[in-house]
Simulated assay, not measured.
Amino acid sequence: MTKEGKKIIFNVIKIMIGCFVFAVAVNMFALPNKLGEGGVTGITMILYYTHNISPAVTNILFNAVILVIGWKLLDKQTILYTILAVGILSVFLKFTEGLQFVADEGIVAAIAAGGLMGLGMGFIMKGEGTTAGSMILAKIMNKFLGWKVSYALLFFDIIVVITSLSVIGIEKFLLTIVSLMISTKVLDFILEGSNPKKTVMIVSDHYEEIALAIDQKISRGITLLNGVGYYKREPKKILYVVISRDQLMAIQNLINDIDPLAFVTISDAQSVIGEGFTREMFIDTEETGDSY
């Protein structure tokens, strides 16, 4: 089997797992406890509460419209995987309709629903698909405005949740907000990992000492860049390093010990691909201490 064929199989498996987990979250935890949700899922839940219409049906109907929009703005592969995800999700929503867990404490249901929804969406997006609805809108915001997918998704979801306030009441509304926050954090964890990377740029006259210390004490590779100060037009050496979050304090202390006047910028790296860093789920790489 070709590499592309294996990739497609892995993506389909991830999408199927994600759809099943998401369907369980909706039918087992969200609906029995009358929680809300964002996006199309939230609208289907409102219709279930008010007219007893199965989310398995309304999920396809509403998403069909949004898929037309997505077809114009997103790459065709993502849309094809999304069509697959919407179909599979509707099947699992129907298949899991009998599962119900009514929690004695609403917060338990909110945590369970939020955690499983975030996990399900994470697997679907790892499979290069979406659950359509606000997920497609979030993908569009990510592509054209650079928003993080998880936060764009939260933005659109909160808009829908606010409209459900009159149906689910203030207590369930607040629990739904908790559920959305949890799903956002879980989705972040799935997409970016438990230890997101940081990029550090250092401008210092003591760059050689700092680079040597980083190499010896933190064991991270360094890229040396050439720069020019705008005001005095003096040449500058810039150190560029990619580190793990737990190495941040160590590198800050190291730089401060050598050159307290060094100019340092620290930024989040949403994704780092290359030797020395994890490439993708299902692919193992070995830490080598090199960065590029």
Results as ranks from 00 to 15, higher is better:
residue 105 E to K: 15
residue 111 I to M: 10
residue 89 L to S: 00
residue 40 V to L: 01
residue 94 K to N: 15
residue 37 E to S: 15
residue 82 T to V: 06
residue 61 L to Y: 09
residue 65 V to P: 02
residue 91 V to W: 06
residue 73 L to H: 13
residue 75 D to I: 08
residue 79 I to V: 15
residue 76 K to R: 15
residue 102 V to P: 09
residue 104 D to V: 12
residue 108 V to D: 00
residue 84 L to D: 02
residue 56 A to V: 11
residue 86 V to P: 03
residue 81 Y to Q: 13
residue 41 T to W: 00
residue 65 V to Y: 07
residue 51 H to G: 05
residue 68 V to P: 03
residue 98 G to L: 11
residue 69 I to S: 04
residue 43 I to H: 00
residue 39 G to D: 03
residue 64 A to M: 15
residue 37 E to I: 06
residue 108 V to Y: 09
residue 114 G to Y: 10
residue 72 K to H: 12
residue 75 D to H: 10
residue 38 G to Q: 08
residue 56 A to G: 13
residue 47 L to W: 02
residue 85 A to S: 02
residue 46 I to A: 01
residue 92 F to A: 04
residue 70 G to F: 06
residue 83 I to Q: 06
residue 67 L to H: 04
residue 108 V to M: 13
residue 107 I to Q: 10
residue 53 I to Q: 03
residue 42 G to A: 07
residue 54 S to Y: 11
residue 65 V to S: 02
residue 101 F to G: 07
residue 50 T to Y: 02
residue 108 V to R: 04
residue 35 L to Y: 00
residue 74 L to Q: 07
residue 74 L to A: 13
residue 110 A to W: 12
residue 63 N to Q: 12
residue 47 L to S: 00
residue 46 I to Y: 00
residue 59 N to K: 11
residue 104 D to W: 08
residue 116 L to A: 12
residue 48 Y to W: 15
residue 35 L to P: 04
residue 72 K to Q: 10
residue 97 E to I: 15
residue 85 A to N: 07
residue 68 V to G: 04
residue 81 Y to R: 01
residue 110 A to E: 12
residue 91 V to C: 02
residue 114 G to I: 01
residue 112 A to C: 11
residue 36 G to P: 02
residue 109 A to I: 02
residue 40 V to G: 07
residue 42 G to Y: 04
residue 94 K to L: 14
residue 46 I to G: 06
residue 116 L to M: 15
residue 88 I to C: 08
residue 44 T to E: 08
residue 103 A to H: 08
residue 92 F to D: 06
residue 85 A to F: 01
residue 87 G to F: 06
residue 100 Q to V: 11
residue 69 I to A: 06
residue 83 I to T: 11
residue 117 M to V: 14
residue 93 L to N: 04
residue 41 T to R: 02
residue 94 K to H: 15
residue 80 L to M: 15
residue 88 I to K: 00
residue 110 A to V: 03
residue 63 N to Y: 03
residue 91 V to A: 00
residue 111 I to K: 03
residue 79 I to A: 11
residue 102 V to M: 09
residue 74 L to W: 05
residue 98 G to Y: 12
residue 49 Y to D: 05
residue 99 L to P: 09
residue 70 G to T: 00
residue 81 Y to L: 03
residue 65 V to T: 05
residue 44 T to Y: 05
residue 111 I to P: 05
residue 47 L to Q: 07
residue 62 F to P: 05
residue 86 V to W: 04
residue 101 F to W: 10
residue 116 L to H: 13
residue 117 M to H: 11
residue 99 L to V: 03
residue 81 Y to P: 09
residue 93 L to W: 06
residue 114 G to H: 02
residue 64 A to W: 04
residue 60 I to E: 02
residue 85 A to Y: 04
residue 41 T to Y: 01
residue 44 T to N: 05
residue 85 A to C: 06
residue 90 S to D: 13
residue 117 M to Q: 10
residue 86 V to Y: 09
residue 78 T to M: 15
residue 40 V to M: 01
residue 40 V to H: 02
residue 53 I to L: 14
residue 110 A to K: 06
residue 108 V to W: 00
residue 95 F to H: 07
residue 41 T to E: 01
residue 45 M to Y: 07
residue 112 A to I: 08
residue 50 T to Q: 07
residue 90 S to M: 07
residue 34 K to S: 13
residue 52 N to F: 14
residue 87 G to K: 05
residue 72 K to W: 14
residue 81 Y to D: 08
residue 75 D to V: 09
residue 72 K to I: 13
residue 51 H to V: 08
residue 99 L to A: 14
residue 88 I to M: 04
